[in-house]
Structure formats: structure tokens, C-alpha cells
Amino acid sequence: MKKIFVLLCLMVNVVGSAQEWNTELEAAKRKAVAFNKNILLVFSGSDWCIPCMELEKKVWQTPEFKAAAQSDWVLLRADFLEKKGDPEPVNVNDPKMILTEKYNRDGFFPFIVTLDKYGKVIGKIGYEDFDTADEYIFLFRKMRK
């Protein structure tokens, strides 16, 4: 069964060149183990955090990052959208809340954590005012195990 899962993941990976952001840690870890990759975890507020929006344009959506991510990382995102109106109660079972509790208790945005394939922290960084995606890619690769 495990071989079938790995084969299906490989087929999806080859056929679909679209960038895939996972939202659940366990799914990201399964893929990271299957492909022997580290995990790049991004905490963002994509509709209210100005540096998060800059990273989206300057890094995450660039062909350079997409190519690097395809070969180097399993992508994982905890995106905290702005809530309008009355706040809802916190759902402790929400995958992004689980990620926050484990990896970003201080609530920094944007915040990028590199994890090994089992979820152990390798490195952490916040926003850097780099000009190109390649500068971020270089930094992320330096945080490899």
C-alpha cells in the first residue's frame, strides 16, 4: 500500500507542475518522508500583512522559487486571513492553530520555519528585504540539514 501511495505521489508530482501548498502537518510529513525532502513552513496573513503580500509576489509566485520548491521542499502554509465582523471562537483543532502552537507561539508574520521530514525545526527566519527570490532560496537552502 505504501508503494502505491509513493507511486501516486510521484505521478502527481510529475504530471502536475503547479505549486502545491499543504495546510496540514501530517500530510506534509508523509510527503517529505516519501520524497526525502525538508518542509518549508510559512506563516502568513495573505490579505492583511504587507510583508506577507510582498513575499507572495517577490518569492512564492516566481518561477525560480517554484522550480526550487519542486526539487527541494514540501510546502506547508498556515495562512491567517483577516476576519471581518465579530470574532469567531478559536478552534484548537484547526490545522493552522496546531502549527502555530507548535512552531510560532509568538505569532510572528511572516515567519518561515524549515523542518526536517519528521517535523523537527532546522531553522527559522522572518521577513528579509531581499530584492530577488534567489536570495530567499539561497537562505532557505542554507538552513538544510
Rank of each mutant, 00 (worst) to 15 (best):
D129H: 14
Y103T: 10
M53E: 12
R77Q: 15
A68V: 02
Y136W: 15
K102F: 00
D134S: 13
I122S: 04
L25C: 13
K83R: 00
V92L: 11
L41C: 09
G85W: 00
M143F: 05
P110D: 12
D106C: 02
K83W: 00
W60S: 10
I122N: 07
Q19E: 14
A32L: 02
N13H: 14
W21M: 07
Y118L: 04
F65P: 08
I137V: 07
K96M: 12
E24T: 06
V15L: 12
A34I: 05
L115V: 06
D129G: 13
T114P: 02
K102D: 04
K37H: 07
E101M: 09
F35R: 05
D86N: 00
A67H: 04
Q61Y: 03
E56I: 03
F138I: 13
D116N: 13
T23A: 09
D86F: 00
V113R: 08
G85D: 00
Y127L: 06
K124D: 09
V42I: 09
F109C: 02
I137G: 10
P63L: 09
K145D: 01
R30G: 10
V121I: 14
M11T: 08
F80Q: 05
A18D: 13
Q70D: 15
Y127S: 04
K31M: 15
N13R: 13
G107T: 12
L81H: 05
S46L: 03
Q19S: 12
V12I: 15
F138P: 02
P95C: 08
R105C: 03
I137Y: 08
L55P: 06
G107F: 13
G123K: 09
E64F: 01
D134Q: 13
M143S: 04
V74H: 11
W21G: 06
F108C: 02
M97K: 14
T114Q: 11
T132H: 09
G16R: 02
K66W: 04
E64Y: 03
L99S: 13
N22V: 00
E54R: 14
F43N: 10
I122W: 02
I112L: 14
D129W: 10
E20L: 12
Q19T: 12
Q70I: 01
P110A: 11
K2G: 12
P95W: 05
V90L: 03
N38W: 00
K124H: 10
L40H: 05
L76R: 08
N38R: 06
A78Q: 10
L81V: 04
K58T: 10
A18H: 11
N93F: 06
A28G: 06
E54N: 13
D129V: 14
G123S: 15
A28K: 04
A78R: 07
E88C: 00
R141S: 02
A27M: 07
W21D: 08
Y118G: 11
L10Y: 15
V6N: 11
